[in-house]
Amino acid sequence: MALLDIKELHATIDEDDGAKAILKGIDLTIRPGEVHAVMGPNGAGKSTLSNVIAGRPGYTVTQGSVTYDGADLLEMEADERARAGLFLAFQYPVEIPGVATATFLKTAINARRKAAGEPEIEALDFLKLMKSTSKRLGVPEDMLKRPVNVGFSGGEKKRVEVLQMAMLEPRLCVLDETDSGLDIDALKVVADGVNALRAPDRGMLVITHYQRLLDYIVPDVVHVLADGRIVKTGDKTLAQELEAKGYAEFTGAAA
């Protein structure tokens, strides 16, 4: 069974002056173990796609369906989706003053355990998990005592996103422009972290503007998104092709 099955998805973004159509018929299927990349120019609908999958308020699905692990994803609230194993790595991780990163992580882990009818994580087990994961991702431990994302550099924020992903053990990871704002060293660390999570029962959707990230996270399938539609699908060589030729061919076609 497909892990994620998107059919004929149309979505609008709610704006002050009315709804604006962004997604205009997306079909996309991810099976367990697969890594899909969605590439596209600015304004193609990449972030809208990730936000609609994650359940962010402010978007309306006008047509089509999204099925996750056999369930109707669009019927679930954002928190239910996350507890069901969906993880969105944010393009712009949100700063939350007053909430320590460690507290936040523990609350998230326990929310999921509670929903699964499991007891809360033991304090010692949590500390061990946090220590080993942060070490692997090169996140200094004292950062986890600080409020969520407050005062973190761009690279640190992305690293902590991947740290959260590793600790929450999702089944479907959606990475929204995780490469934006990263220098090459940070990019490698983040990509290593993501690669370590590749597993036969886990799917990934990597959304990016540039091919650079895909040198490190090598996808099984590459889709080109332009003007709210997937206009081309291929293997990893498609990404290299795009790097050489740019998006002009598709934006032209879409216009």
Partner: peptide
């Protein structure tokens, strides 16, 4: 955005809001 970020990590809305209220008073 803060409420959504917490919910996107599986924290139910009421709990997310309570956490943010506590953070506000921190």
């Amino acid at each position: 955005d803060q409420v959504f970020y917490l919910m996107a990590r599986g924290i139910p809305e009421a709990e997310a809001r309570a956490l943010l209220v506590e953070a506000f008073l921190d």
